[in-house]
Nucleic acid binder design. Structure first.
Lengths: 334, 334
DNA sequence: CTGTTAGCGCATTCAT
DNA sequence: ATGAATGCGCTAACAG
């Protein structure tokens, strides 16, 4: 392994001069600079980032930690990456909830210290552990649930999004709209917030709220959603609209309805949530609440940058606005 | 920041004893152990992984570096994570091709040294740079193109997969099958390998190979695929089958065909490549070549583990077998 | 079983 | 503009 000392010897200068050349910190005379760079090239020197980190206390790296990088988080992470890199840092992705047996997660506090800043998705996270732990690293939480006051936090306008989607389908003529994937469980904020929006839209339109139309699903996968949807259809419960809590859930529902010969949007309107890249291509185009990845990323990274710059004011709890994107799966589109 | 020395003082032992307790290296007497653990708890000590890395030369971390973590790589990374974690290490994801202006990538060799091992996707990678660089870190390349001999490399059986899909559609009655997203460009291995499989299937069936049926697309997105497909349909070129080079491309084609009133599979059969989780839910279910994420991940991680264990034999260039998964988008399914 | 010594490679501080 | 000393926090190797 070639070290800075080797470069220094090769160039006939001190170690500090090499360091100054590479970091462009103190001014260095041009001839000296050239000799150093030549030595770097000749020896193929690469800085040891670990040593730099230990000494300088800075990694120039931010971590985005989430349960997985499928679908939603995959799209969000792309936006985040651009913003972090614009700030001259690297972004790395880590997953919580790795092994199934570890149920929640094995988020190591020690690992957080490897980064200058951390964006942490609170989906499926053990909040209590966070609460108890003294974390020196700047950190911003992302996700649809309550978190302790002292953390910066960014979430979506879940209720409003669900209300928009549901109201739009009511305008389009639906009267019996399923809330697929929603729950009455206040402990699960996302599913109950979005249910509240669905409820609000129904009430605003003078429709009743029948709890049979709130259909929970065992997990947030298309497969589970498909099964739940088939059960509903086969049960004979009449419905003419579906608000799916995420696009992935909507996809499962679309599959189930196609199997049973229900036409979209003629027989049933359907809307999802997230506006994943793919959903505009699912015939006839899935109406969806745009989760505003861009806005979410900007807000989160903005808060993180502020914190990394030494800001110590009170934590902010931001709610990012969403909007409805109307496509062929609902009637009366713009 | 509480250091090991603080814990040692609190517990009335030496720093080494603390280290030995935490790493379970040398045996430590039970009462001593208990005192150390108590001190760790009391002070809220967390090990400094950077210092450990600098000293021990080991991070217990593997990086998977790819262009993005949408779709295909997102699914592969989940499989890889499980295998890496089974080996007692962490997996982190990094992206190449960050900013659009940096065209290819800004893969920093220095960063590779932060990891015990690296899995590197060669899609959109500047191979020449890799070739020139002396990399001390164990590394395995993944992806559908040729790489220098000396690197371990895992790729898919692209030609065979494309052949399977195309032959299956021919069996189902198609006679004019588009190769959507394929090219004659030998510099782009994936698109030309898969084109070769399509060609082979056509020739085996006694059908001609008309270059007009090889339809390149500007980029691997559903939107670009949709545009290309609409152009083909509107051009009047007769076709009754589509082999799409990836599922994402197939999705764009499905969207285009729905817009133009072409029925799947009655008018046109279509098959994709990758077998992404979502494609079984796209009505009527997309036939696809399973890219064997599991097999790919196992092979790649296996090679990496071997290298990290000190193996210095010749590099291996593995080709992972694929299989066809038949669904409703093609006729004559099993 | 436990403690002592030494140093991983770099950047901060101060001296020249 | 350049160099020398110092230590970031930890663990390998050995001594007791």
């Amino acid at each position: 392994m070639v070290r800075m000392a080797d470069v220094a010897r090769e160039a006939g200068v001190s170690v500090m001069t090499v360091s100054n050349v590479l970091n462009e910190r103190l001014p260095v005379g041009e001839p000296t600079r050239a000799r150093v760079m030549a030595a770097v090239e000749a020896l193929g020197y690469e800085v040891n980032l670990t040593a730099r980190h230990l000494r300088a206390g800075r990694t120039d790296t931010v971590a985005f930690i989430a349960p997985s990088f499928h679908d939603y988080f995959g799209e969000v992470s792309d936006k985040i990456a651009l913003l972090i890199e614009a700030g001259g840092r690297h972004l790395v992705l880590e997953r919580t909830s790795a092994s199934p047996e570890q149920e929640m997660e094995a988020l190591s506090v020690a690992r957080l210290r490897l980064y200058d800043g951390v964006l942490l998705s609170v989906a499926g996270l053990d909040i209590d552990r966070l609460e108890r732990v003294r974390i020196p690293t700047p950190i911003v939480l992302l996700g649809e649930r309550d978190v302790p006051e002292r953390f910066n936090h960014v979430r979506l306008a879940n209720e409003e999004g669900a209300r928009l989607a549901t109201a739009h389908m009511i305008e389009g003529g639906s009267r019996r709209i399923l809330a697929l994937g929603c729950t009455f469980d206040p402990g699960h904020m996302m599913s109950s917030d979005r249910r509240l929006g669905w409820e609000r839209a129904c009430l605003d339109a003078g429709l009743g709220v029948d709890p049979r139309y709130v259909v929970p699903i065992s997990e947030y996968s298309s497969a589970a959603a498909r099964d739940a949807m088939l059960d509903v259809i086969d049960s004979g419960l009449p419905f003419d609209g579906v608000f799916a809590i995420t696009d992935i859930i909507a996809l499962g529902a679309v599959s189930a309805m196609a199997d049973r010969g229900l036409r979209i949007p003629a027989d049933v309107q359907i809307a999802g949530f997230d506006n994943l890249d793919m959903v505009r291509f699912i015939p006839p185009g899935l109406t969806s609440v745009d989760a505003n990845h861009e806005g979410l990323a900007e807000k989160a990274v903005g808060l993180l940058h502020r914190q990394m710059s030494g800001w110590t004011g009170p934590a902010e709890h931001a709610v990012v606005p969403v909007r409805l994107v109307v496509r062929g799966s609902t009637r009366g589109g713009a």
